[in-house]
């Protein structure tokens, strides 16, 4: 067989593999959207759940998902930013650093259900916080930290060394160089990573079943005082998220149209995650232009 022919066969095979991957994705997306979208309505998106008569909406769950996401990010971004900066700029190349790196890798490969059970035992039971938004947010932080830290470290390391030398040669301290010069250049990559991880967190169910709980008490959306028990912002109330809701409807849904409701909720979830991905691209390239080009 000559080289040209071999090359042609290899190209065809590779194209085929790519086509399969893309095909699976589009099949899944189309299936979920076609099954679910007809059942999505405004009242479904905003209404409260009624588990029995099948008129239930996902308003509270949708809010819970976003609220949990915001809380998780508020906790995990500062921590992973610190860890990422440390690993990229300050850590010496020695056994301690490689120990930290492998610890982060192990953390990222923990099954999410194990993280959830750990959160259940520690926060829900031991610390007596109960099923709550905050327990869920901390469990999701465990799950989110390694990925974010890695992403931030890689974005920072991708900034050329010459930029650091330029800052130092002007008498700027290492920290000032880091925050004022390196971080802005790395920002688009970091933001992209944050938004993508937001998509993952948004769709997570297993880690939340035992931490944020499986019930969505009807909340009073007119009450924005986080201290009130009925307030949607109260971090100590149980909060079933959209992904958990889908899981629950499929395992113990009592309504006759549970399958349709679950399909509709899945469609909403998928659309939200797609929007996060799209948002990551748009925001990343916008920031890149803004940071590198003129203001």
């Amino acid at each position: 067989m000559n080289a040209k022919r071999k090359d042609m066969i290899a190209t065809v095979i590779i194209d085929l593999i790519v086509a399969i991957v893309v095909g699976i994705l589009f099949f899944l997306l189309a299936y979920i959207l076609i099954k679910g979208l007809p059942h999505v309505s405004w009242s479904f998106l905003t209404g409260a759940t009624d588990s029995f008569d099948g008129t239930g909406g996902i308003g509270v769950q949708l809010f819970n998902s976003f609220y949990l996401l915001v809380l998780t990010m508020l906790i995990s971004i500062p921590i992973s930013l610190g860890a990422g900066i440390y690993l990229a700029e300050y850590a010496k190349d020695n056994w301690r650093t490689s120990l930290i790196r492998s610890a982060i890798e192990v953390l990222s490969s923990l099954p999410s259900v194990v993280v959830g059970l750990f959160g259940f035992l520690l926060f829900v039971v031991k610390f007596k916080i109960g099923f709550s938004v905050i327990s869920g947010a901390i469990a999701l932080t465990f799950f989110n930290l390694p990925l974010l830290t890695r992403n931030i470290e890689e974005s920072l390391s991708a900034v050329p060394r010459s930029q650091r030398e330029a800052g130092l040669s002007l008498g700027l301290s290492k920290w000032k160089t880091e925050v004022g010069i390196i971080l802005p250049v790395a920002l688009p990559g970091i933001v992209t990573g944050v938004v993508l991880s937001a998509g993952r967190v948004f769709g997570e169910a297993a880690a939340l079943i035992y931490t944020a709980g499986q019930s969505a008490p009807v909340t009073n959306f007119a009450d924005w005082n986080p201290m009130d028990a009925a307030s949607p912002l109260n971090p100590f109330r149980p909060a079933e998220t959209l992904a958990v809701h889908i899981w629950k409807m499929n395992t113990e849904g009592l309504a006759s149209n549970a399958a349709a409701l679950s399909a509709a909720a899945s469609a909403v979830l998928i659309i939200a995650v797609l929007l996060f991905n799209l948002g990551a691209r748009v925001l990343g390239s916008y920031l890149y232009r803004r940071v590198t080009a003129s203001k």
């Binding site: 010459s162 930029q163 030398e165 040669s169 002007l170 008498g171 700027l172 010069i181």
Partner: peptide
């Protein structure tokens, strides 16, 4: 050393302006 580097400036082999505006390149430090 930071004080020293303000008195003894350096220009490198490859141009390494900051990814900022021309104005900010001068004013940042």
């Amino acid at each position: 050393i930071y004080e020293i580097r303000r008195h003894i400036g350096m220009v490198f082999q490859r141009p390494n302006p900051f990814a900022k505006s021309i104005r900010e390149n001068i004013t940042y430090a």
